[in-house]
Write a protein that binds this DNA or RNA. Sequence first.
RNA 1: GCCUGGGUGGCGGAACUGGUAGACGCAAGGGACUUAAAAUCCCUCGGAGCUUAGCUCUGUACGAGUUCAAUUCUCGUCCCAGGUACCA
Length: 866
Amino acid sequence: MDDRYNPEKVESRWQEYWEKNHIFRASEDKSKSKYYLLEMFPYPSGKIHMGHVRNYTIGDVVARYKRMNGYNVLHPMGWDAFGMPAENAAIDNKTHPATWTYQNISTMQSQLKRMGFSYDWEREVATCKPEYYRWEQWLFLKMLEKDMVYRKESYVNWCEHCQTVLANEQVESDLCWRCGEMVQQKKLWQWFFRITDYADDLLVYCDNLPGWPEKVTLMQKNWIGKSTGSEISFKIEGQEDYIKVFTTRPDTLFGATFMCLAPEHPLVESLSKGRPQEAQVAAFVDKISKQERSSSSIEKYEKEGVFVGAWCINPANGRRMPIYTANFALMEYGTGAVMSVPAHDQRDFDFAKKYNLDIVVVIQPKEGTPLDSATMTEACPDPGLLANSGKYDGMDNSEAMDKITDWLEKEGLGKKTISFRLRDWGISRQRYWGTPIPVIHCQTCGVVPTPESDLPIVLPEDAHLLENGGSPLPTLDFFKKATCPKCGRADAKRDTDTMDTFVESSWYFIRYCSPHCDTAMFDKEAVKYWMPVDQYIGGVEHAILHLLYSRYFMRVLNTLGLIDFKEPFTNLLTQGMVLKETLKCPEHNYIFPEEAQIADGKATCKKCGNDVEIGRVIKMSKSKKNVIDPNDLLNRYGADITRLFCLFASPPEKGLEWNDDGVEGCYRFINRVWRLAATCIEITKGAKPYSGSLSQLSDSDAKKLYTKAHQTIKKVTDDIDGSFHFNTAISAVMELVNAMYSVELTSNSSDEVKSVALFCIEHIILLLSPIVPHFAEEVWMLMGKSEGITEQKWSTYREDALLSDEILVVVQVNGKLRSKFSIDAESSDELIQKTALADEVVQKYIDGKAIKKVIVVRKKLVNIVV
RNA sequence: GCCUGGGUGGCGGAACUGGUAGACGCAAGGGACUUAAAAUCCCUCGGAGCUUAGCUCUGUACGAGUUCAAUUCUCGUCCCAGGUACCA
């Protein structure tokens, strides 16, 4: 046996062994319990980085652990291969998105293979292949048939200079990232999935996902944002028309003193038409229409508005309310109109102060000084009793919500209603590298679905990317020109938009069940066996969008009768992000860490010598270049130590600022185990691992080690199975290894110690095997085992070997630790209390003082209060 | 801005359900072995103070509170990260 672990020699050999023997090939074996373990597939951006390594190592440990526990494990991997970075790279490097993507897939695949992950590579999928996306097109057509998709006009970021659509990421403080021109908004006809039809169901099931972290379901609930309230109609003065608002506070109706409409609200133009305010309103609407529309940007803009020149009537008290259009009223939410109650809503209050509008208090707090509109400095949203509200005066506001709504309903001016924050999912992208939307636009027939037999509508891979970043598809006649399938018109046009890449990732996990099925989206029997995913693991960054879209897609498939379940992922582990500071060179923009020279908190660019700006510590991503490629660690330490280190660094759900300082310790640990194994193999020849009861052992070292070993098995099992806290699992094994080193193991050791030592080392290797599989295979083989460690059963512990006979009790006086003592584990609370009070050190602190209270925590602690 | 998390030694982190703060490791310092180095092994290691075999005080972002007891629960503040609907 070598005197140290040699990853270079060992790791590729076992990888070949696993591959040659198809160890990780999964097949539907109905005699076994299935376990579908899935990690979020990566976008092939170039090379893998530590974020991937961490995610996939976590998954691999669980996969191998479940396999050892007798499950039939499905553990697939693939590529989320469509997306914008491929287009950017194509422009930057004068290559083609497909070439770039396939090259990256090949690089990243070999990196993943080098990590020794237990994937069934025969199930690999890449979403950019027609074999994959044809089924997405097929599903789109099914959805179109059932009216689950529709078209409407909506805005995109538009750069006039580049003549192209920009993603939110490509807009940097209102400017185009390529040319620096001010970004505008452009209205386009786009396709939307009716996800809002499932808003309630998606919400309700959030409470039915016990295997998900609560923070994720909570975020989803807030995202869906169900609010109950009332729809109220306000008559427009001098017209027959009404303005409908949605409000969660009908109790404050009497305090509504003005009205705000979204700038895109159809009434804004019609009401202001012909009035003195017309030009000002038009200018305001125009200004807002050019502003960015992302929620974070909208919130950054100062709240402002203009009077449209018209009034509406408050149905409760007949008050004339000026109608404004304001940038905080959103057309996408509620009805696009807001009744403003400045006394009880801060935003309305600010707005009223700014434009000198009336403030009327209609809810008085039950206690404290009454509110006075003349002296208030902020709005009061708190509950209380109604005032200035006619017959509702004095009523509790929670009761008034219903009462006022009931009255409105009788008058035909309102009703109870529910509003969601969730919006329909816009899927049209004016991009090239994505799944073509399978419809044809005909001047006679309108939108016509592509016949199923024409699928897939293949994305032409011989297209050249445009310098401005725009999609070449509209310029390709051979792609764009189509014959109308309905009327036969020859001048019909194929839709040249592609789908949002979140569409591909909303169903890839179901494709893995039968990845080569070419007659359907998936094989129903295979899906019945494997789905839903038992454990899904991925970055917490996907807590809302990807996970919500996937849940929505399963509902669509369920509605279409294709599957009989609704929730795709039974258990979810959201991994914290691996973070690293960004580096920005004035000449080269973002640079990779290896392109900078960093010393004493200062950085310079190796290429140009300029000072580099050290930016915030953010999640690793290729676009910001703050990535650490694992190849360096792999070359120095191999896969197992890289895996071990990633897991040992922190628990998975926590974010991790990347730093490889501790890796040397992992290397030392592995070699400590290696040498320990070598010693055990050497001295225990002919011995059998001990597996009897603790009480049958007489040697104190043997007893100590045996208990520790069983405690370790329990700890590691609980840490992996319950919480994925591999860092503490590894610590536990380290403790056992330390305990073994503290016992002198020589050929002169007693037989008892030898056979306990053998038990210990075998279980150390078994416990470590999911984490450092190559190392474990190698040691296992050197220990003379004929079967690979992947075929072994997971360790189990004996309850009767877990406990030692003595326990440690700590004694506090007034909550401060003063003493401790060991006592027989079976001692009664009375005896423990008596022993504590008699303790010499304790006596010193309680001497001469009256004992007020003694608290005894079972088998653990005594607190004496004096 | 809003939603969701997080903040513990020089560093990564540990602490069951409110019960010994700092497990396990890294770094650092000291020592052993060695001609030397590497490797390995042993010791010290939150801070402050003192009458220094030890003892006392203090300490889990900050400020309050609940409790016999708070890293853990409540309220407020600050900072950091993720998401914010076209990055994936």
